[in-house]
Simulated assay, not measured.
Amino acid sequence: MEDSGLKRVVVTGGNTGIGFALCKQLLTEDNCFVYLCSRNQERGTAAVAEIQAAYPAHKERIHLVLVDTSVPDSIVAAAEAVREHLGTHKLYAIVNNAGVGLATRTSKQALLDTNFWGPKRMVDAFMPMLQDAGRVVHVGSGAGPMWLKKQSEDEIKFLSTEHTWEELEQFVIKRMATTDDFGDYGLSKSALACLGMTQARVYPSITFSTVSPGFINTKLVAGFGATKPPEEGTVSIRHCLFQPLPGNGWFWGSDAKRSPLHTTRDPGTPEYKGE
């Protein structure tokens, strides 16, 4: 990797949907070296080949990383592979985009492994490679606030403030036992945003953000009526990757405006100003 000025970014779930769109944009518009992460060798190889064929001038700036973010050992192996590939360079950012739920029906355990424990384990494994003032973006969902606003005052307060990892993990495990399919997903995304707040306190030199990409036509919401293409789901991600941010651990709406965790905020409405 001859250009030491490149921003090096890891993107999980990079072979499809919003992750795939983001990888293309990072490569061609944001002067990045992209580690496209896929849990499947064949699909990952095809995704990288498609991008290299479309943008041959940038073909040396994308690298496939195999990782199943629901499997701890896979994350450890992926981190070692990236560490070896980086050499003396540092990562600029991690984008925890991989997610399951809703139309991609799965078990409660698999959902938590991917949507909640996966991002935590990715940060733990890749943090030593992040540069000072690096960034971490968790791809959350508007389903998080949509679910949380209907819960008890105590639960709203809990998931709207930072906690220790142990406190958050215990809450999520206990609460997940009582949720339905939509609640499973909404809880996992609310908990992910809370995780971002907690990580911002633990790693104050790194800027953490959790974002809603919007109602985007991906496999996750297949059949739900979403029409916006994946390329429109990267606005808040790229904002939180590259723009100056006035706070750490915040939740951002799909229009790249700060949004609350405890209730919904529609794009285009006033930005959230709370604590």
Rank of each mutant, 00 (worst) to 15 (best):
D73H: 06
P270I: 14
I94L: 12
T28F: 12
H89M: 04
F224Q: 02
N217F: 02
V11Q: 03
H163M: 01
Y272A: 13
H63P: 07
Y185G: 10
N248D: 11
E155M: 04
S188M: 11
P246H: 01
E42K: 15
Q109N: 15
R83P: 00
G87Y: 05
K174L: 01
D30H: 14
V65Q: 04
M129D: 00
R83L: 02
H63T: 10
V95D: 09
I51T: 00
W147V: 08
M129G: 00
A81G: 06
K150V: 12
H239I: 08
H63R: 07
L159V: 02
E80N: 06
D73Y: 11
N97P: 06
L27N: 09
P128N: 07
W117P: 09
V123M: 04
V10R: 05
E50H: 13
S259Q: 05
A78Q: 02
V82R: 00
P128F: 01
H89S: 00
M197W: 12
F33T: 06
E167L: 02
I206C: 05
E271M: 08
C32S: 12
V211Y: 13
H239Y: 03
R258C: 14
A46H: 10
I75R: 04
T263I: 11
I18A: 10
K189E: 01
F224E: 07
Y92E: 05
G101D: 14
N31D: 14
G274H: 13
G225K: 12
A79C: 01
A125E: 00
L168N: 00
K108M: 13
A46L: 12
E60K: 11
P270D: 13
H63F: 01
A57E: 03
F251V: 04
L220V: 14
Y185A: 02
S188H: 11
G142F: 14
L27F: 15
N217S: 02
A47D: 04
C23N: 01
